[in-house]
Design a protein around this nucleic acid. Structure first.
Lengths: 295, 295
DNA sequence: GGGCAGTTTCTTCTCTATAAAGGACCGTTG
DNA sequence: CAACGGTCCTTTATAGAGAAGAAACTGCCC
């Protein structure tokens, strides 16, 4: 049976919306809420009827009143607000990146399903999607083969990454002066400066900024295969660094400075300068990843 | 329920093996057959017992005799020897490449399942795997979006292909004189010459040679992401040209000549010459693809 | 008559079930 | 004692079912 994670997440989100509206306010229309919560009206109606049952909303039809003071406290646990497939992704990444799963290990769908508490279908579906990241290989009628999150994986990843990033950066530098991307990259530069000022406290915010920066660079010359490749980078880095916090502040601070140098290079519109800054940044990202893997 | 396509394919293959052994020969051991047919002993045993039931094999245990003269004629129809997932792949490719499915079309799992005569699970599994080819996109809880086999798809594909192929070709040319790949590429050159001599009749054989050639070039500097990308090329070309036979002979003959020039360039070990030959080949491959798409 | 809630229909997500295929173990035989 | 076939258990591939969620339809009301 499908889980009701969408409903539970929407319910929690709705509580936030209502508390911002304040006590006694009229409830927005179902349509308005469905737009705001980004779910269908069907789900919104289910949320409203649950809210009504708990007394957080009273009235009926078009005459509904918010009582955010009452029982706004209780929420669904976060664990129940993520769909089964997202759970599988998280647990699987944990399994290969944290638990030092050996290269060459055979992956057993049934065993993983039991371990993760989901049906085998969920595991199969995930593995099929995950295949494209080059960490596992399918053996027809005989399970999956884990190739290993190894040094050679990282080296191959960075070889391609350098190709793609350099290509996009050169294309970016060659953008006409009127391109809206120039304003965006300047804005991103400011965000980097702001982050740097408060790096002691906000160093976790780098990961998001990093992903946005590289995707902006890529958007100078859109190519779906480059985007697909960046999904790998994003996923690997997201999970790997989530569990490898060593030197996180210094690491991120250095990367922010490299980004700024890289952005300045782009703004100079000089291809040679761009290539230098880009390579320098990727080289240090590679070194950082390799070091964190061996440790 | 799982289909028994593996069994049926193995049964047909076994008939070929037996007819080569000739009448009255002793049946090879189960282990030997399982290696030869590339299936498990379990399947081999099922094949043998079916052969026995039909009288093509007599005796029992280690004392079995082949009677290839008897009833060797009957085989399982080819359609029953392909697994459900392979059927889905074929039907789906047909659907998007031949039936001119529109860019922007919404893909409905249930409808495809009915149309293809398989369960929705099979469709979902295929779509999840197929996602990496950049032709479809998933909308959470709301089906799939077909981006279209369009000109921009082809252009993006070839942009990356040129990057990768050039990289591998340069690496190939830089291989040490002692590398076994030199002998392999010379052998492949001879195969090209042979094909060219008989091109009028054998022009269909090019597709396989093409794939082997490019994979050999890539093997000079192995990178799993390059390999993954080549899966896309192989799949797209395989199906697209299977249904676009126009000018096939001329097209393939030209490509064979380009390959030979490209191989000669590699053998010269001069990076500039290699880059020229490589680019020339890819440029004409791109032109050919684009022309066949618009027509 | 445009926006709204009530109703209905259709699709996706996820689980369970089961036959097919893989593979380990074991006693036998040449 | 190595290779073989018989037996049995495990795992994968596929069908099928049903709840959750999306979206279209309908009539009401200001």
């Amino acid at each position: 049976m499908k889980t009701d994670a969408v409903f539970k997440r929407s319910f929690n989100d709705a509580l936030d919306v209502l508390s911002r509206l304040g006590d006694g306010a009229p409830l927005p229309s179902e349509k308005a809420l469905s737009v705001q919560l980004r779910v269908s009206r069907t789900t919104v109606r289910k949320v409203i009827s649950t809210l009504s049952a708990r007394g957080v909303v009273t009235g009926s039809g078009r005459e509904r009143i918010v009582h955010s003071a009452r029982g706004t406290m209780w929420r669904f646990p976060d664990a129940e607000t993520v769909s089964a497939s997202e759970q599988v992704e998280k647990r699987f990444m944990e399994w290969i990146l944290r638990e030092n799963t050996r290269p060459g290990a055979i992956i057993n769908e049934l065993e993983l399903a039991r371990q993760f508490g989901v049906a085998t279908t969920g595991i199969r579906e995930f593995l099929n999607r995950f295949q494209r990241f080059g960490l596992i290989e399918k053996r027809q009628n005989a399970g999956w083969f884990f190739k290993g999150f190894t040094e050679s994986f990282a080296l191959e990843l960075f070889e391609i990454r350098e190709f793609f990033e350099l290509r996009s950066a050169i294309a970016f530098a060659a953008l006409p002066a009127g391109s809206p991307l120039w304003a965006q990259i300047e804005a991103l530069r400011d965000e980097h400066l702001l982050l740097l000022e408060d790096i002691e406290r906000r160093y976790h915010d780098f990961s998001d900024l990093d992903s946005r920066f590289h995707r902006l660079v890529n958007s100078a010359a859109p190519n779906r295969f480059v985007d697909i490749f960046y999904d790998i980078i994003t996923l690997i880095f997201h999970y790997h660094y989530q569990w490898n916090k060593r030197d996180e502040r210094q690491r991120n601070e250095a990367a922010v400075r490299e980004h700024i140098a890289y952005i300045d290079a782009l703004l100079s519109r000089n291809a040679v300068v761009v290539a230098l800054a880009c390579r320098a940044h990727l080289e240090s990202a590679k070194t950082t990843l390799l070091r964190s893997m061996s440790g």
